[in-house]
Measured scan of single mutants.
Amino acid sequence: ATNIVSKVKWYNSTKNFGFIEQDNGGKDVFVHKSAVDAAGLHSLEEGQDVIFDLEEKQGKAYAVNLRIK
């Protein structure tokens, strides 16, 4: 899926990962520091509106092509 609009559930800049809620009630989506860095960001804030693409690797959903709404 591409261009999903949602909100950051939480992000831990010390552990370099977090999760984004899915508005459709699906499972929370993992977001890694590499996606945050690629977006030119230093961190994410809880409740922040984001747009991302969903990529599945080894049966897990990852946020990629992250951008701020």
Rank of each mutant, 00 (worst) to 15 (best):
I68V: 13
W10K: 03
E56W: 15
F19K: 02
V8M: 03
E56F: 15
T14E: 12
Q22R: 14
K7V: 08
K9P: 01
K69F: 14
K57C: 13
K57W: 12
V29W: 08
F52A: 02
V50E: 00
F19V: 04
V8G: 01
D37V: 15
V50D: 00
D53N: 06
I20R: 00
I4A: 06
A61W: 15
I68K: 07
Y11Q: 00
K60R: 13
A1W: 12
A63M: 01
W10I: 03
H42I: 13
N16M: 11
S43H: 12
F19R: 02
Q22F: 14
D49A: 14
K69Q: 13
A1L: 13
V29S: 02
A61Q: 14
G59C: 07
N24H: 12
L41E: 06
I68P: 09
W10R: 03
E56H: 13
G26Y: 10
Y11D: 02
I4T: 06
G25E: 09
F17Y: 15
I68W: 07
W10G: 01
G47S: 05
T2D: 07
A39M: 06
Y11C: 04
A39H: 03
D28V: 05
L66Y: 00
G26I: 09
V5A: 11
V29L: 07
K27F: 11
V64H: 05
V64A: 07
A35I: 07
V5N: 11
V36E: 00
G26E: 10
D49K: 12
S43L: 11
K60G: 07
T2E: 10
K60N: 08
G47L: 04
T14C: 14
I51W: 09
F52C: 03
N24W: 11
H32I: 03
V8L: 04
A38F: 08
N3F: 07
G25F: 09
G59I: 01
E21Q: 14
A35S: 09
E56C: 14
H42T: 13
F52M: 04
K9I: 06
K57Q: 10
K57I: 11
D37K: 14
Q48K: 05
G40Q: 07
N65M: 04
K57D: 09
G59M: 05
S6Q: 06
V29D: 00
D53Y: 04
K27T: 09
V29A: 05
K60C: 10
F19S: 02
F30N: 00
G26C: 11
T2I: 13
V50H: 00
E55I: 14
Y62P: 02
G47D: 05
F30Q: 01
E21V: 15
S13L: 10
Q58F: 14
A39P: 00
H42Q: 12
L54P: 01
I51F: 07
W10N: 02
H32C: 07
V64G: 04
L44C: 03
K57L: 10
L66K: 00
E55W: 14
V8A: 02
I68T: 11
G59N: 08
G25C: 10
V64D: 03
G18T: 02
L54D: 00
I51C: 10
Y11A: 00
S13V: 13
A63C: 04
N12F: 07
A39R: 03
A38W: 07
E46A: 15
A63I: 03
D23T: 15
H32R: 03
F17D: 01
K60V: 08
I20M: 08
K60T: 07
N12R: 08
F52N: 00
H32V: 03
N12S: 14
D28M: 07
N16W: 08
D53F: 04
F52D: 00
L44P: 01
Q48E: 09
E21D: 08
K7E: 02
F19G: 01
A35N: 04
G47N: 07
G47K: 06
S43E: 11
T14N: 12
N65D: 03
L54V: 13
I20P: 00
V8E: 01
E55M: 14
I20C: 04
V8F: 02
S13P: 14
V8D: 00
E45Y: 15
Y11M: 02
S43Q: 11
E46P: 15
T2G: 08
K9A: 04
G25A: 09
F30M: 04
A63P: 01
